[in-house]
């Protein structure tokens, strides 16, 4: 699960990077950047952290 989270986090950056090559529109780039940031945050907060908390010391 944490591994998938790392990939998703990186994927968010790739989405943002692709905005530079896919369009010249400022608005489109802004939307893609925001989507990229949201995807990265989901990777960290929605996947990596829950994966670590599943085996956290306070659960034992």
């Amino acid at each position: 699960m944490a591994g998938i989270g790392i990939v998703v986090t990186l994927l968010g950056f790739v989405i943002t990077l692709m905005s530079l090559g896919m369009t010249d529109s400022v608005n489109a780039r802004m939307i893609m950047s925001l989507v990229g940031i949201a995807v990265s945050f989901f990777g960290i907060m929605g996947l990596i952290i829950p994966a670590y908390n599943k085996n956290a010391i306070w659960r034992k």
């Binding site: 968010g12 950056f13 790739v14 905005s19 802004m30 990229g36 940031i37």
Partner: peptide
Amino acid sequence: LIGVSTLVGLVF
């Protein structure tokens, strides 16, 4: 925002 995405997505 591209800088922010680089920080959150790549640097992290």
